[in-house]
């Protein structure tokens, strides 16, 4: 049994947060959680198909990073992309409709669970193969630098965040892109969601160096280890990384230690992870933790938090109704979108 990594201690007092910001983060995490729970329900009721990977447990990463960015920044996700899309501002209606395969989905029902896209929200996509989104994110970051430094557009200071898991950090594209990002000082955040398991492959069975954040140092890049179950800790590190990137100081690797509360996908029997491990991480639930913090800091009371949860519950129910009542894509448009339209 490999010893559990000791999480870095985080000084909650160092990250000052006001009520509005605190509730915004909390609400985004509740949306992520409730949306995914609803997906599980709809999947088992035969409303959505294919491989559906849920984000439960990892909400602090999506909310902590993306809510530290501007709406015109870029987000690049993986196959576990519903919640990144929501944090990036894609309406729950459009994400749910995509899962239902409807024309009103953010990818017009052509993409599905693993392929959420929204140009309007600068969501570069859900990428279903391991590592393939990282170079694409790098290209968006290069584009910002190109506009600023080759075309002289001083307003081109957009930052890109690329999300991926621990399993991806053994893939060549991870190393290749860290190298190029550092080489060209590109405005990008490499956000590792280390949830300890690549389907059934335990991280320590796949990685000779399990502390992923250390891999930044060989590229001369800052690397941070952060408690990925603590939205304020993630936010704190993300804000610093975003500021560095925006100032033209280059990339940052952020390793968020987190856990998925469900199997790899809804098709995963999840037989390998021990109950003890699950219980231990469940006790660190980022939503419960944020609730306790908000109350302890007198930023919200129980009634306010209940009201938020109720509102999000209705919001997600509405998304289901929207998806159910939306039209299917037209068979006449089967061939549309293969090539760009004029």
């Amino acid at each position: 049994m490999v010893q559990e990594r000791i999480l870095p201690t985080f000084q909650a007092t160092s990250a000052k947060i006001d009520k509005e910001e605190g509730l915004r983060l909390y609400e985004d995490m509740v949306l992520g959680r409730y949306f995914e729970d609803k997906c599980a329900e709809m999947y088992y009721r035969g409303k959505m198909f294919g491989f559906v990977h849920l984000y439960n447990g990892q909400e602090a990463v999506s909310s902590g990073v993306i809510k530290s960015m501007r709406p015109d920044d870029f987000v690049c996700s993986t196959y576990r992309d519903h919640v990144h899309a929501l944090s990036a501002g894609v309406p729950a209606n459009a994400v749910m409709a995509e899962l239902f395969g409807k024309e009103t989905g953010c990818s017009k029902g052509r993409g599905g669970s693993m392929h959420m896209f929204s140009k309007e929200h600068n969501l570069l996509g859900g990428f279903a193969f391991i590592g393939e989104g990282i170079p694409v994110a790098l290209g968006a970051a290069f584009q910002s630098r190109y506009r600023r430094d080759a075309l002289g557009d001083a307003s081109a200071d957009q930052v890109t965040a690329a999300f991926f898991g621990d399993g991806t950090t053994n893939n060549g594209q991870f190393f290749e892109c860290l190298n190029m990002a550092a080489l060209w000082k590109l405005p990008i955040l490499f956000v590792v969601e280390n949830n300890k398991w690549a389907i059934g492959m335990a991280h320590e069975r796949a990685s000779s160096q399990t502390e992923i954040y250390r891999k930044a140092s060989v590229f001369g890049m800052p690397g941070y280890e952060v408690d990925g179950m603590d939205v304020l800790a993630v936010r704190d590190v993300a804000k610093q990384a975003v500021a560095r990137a925006r100032a033209g100081e280059g990339p940052t690797l952020i390793e968020c230690l987190t856990y998925r509360f469900r199997g790899h996908s809804l098709a995963d029997p999840d037989e390998l992870r021990s109950q003890a491990e699950k219980d231990e991480w469940q006790a660190r639930d980022p939503l419960t933790r944020m609730e306790a913090y908000l109350i302890e800091q007198n930023l919200a009371d129980d009634a306010e938090l209940k009201a938020i949860k109720k509102r999000i519950e209705v919001h997600v129910e509405d998304a289901v109704k929207f998806a159910e009542s939306s039209p299917e894509p037209s068979p006449e448009e089967l061939h549309r979108y293969i090539f760009a339209e004029d």
Partner: peptide, 11 residues
């Protein structure tokens, strides 16, 4: 593979 993907992202 990475610089081709980077071109995709830039495009």
């Amino acid at each position: 593979n990475s610089f081709t993907g980077m071109a995709v992202g830039a495009a």
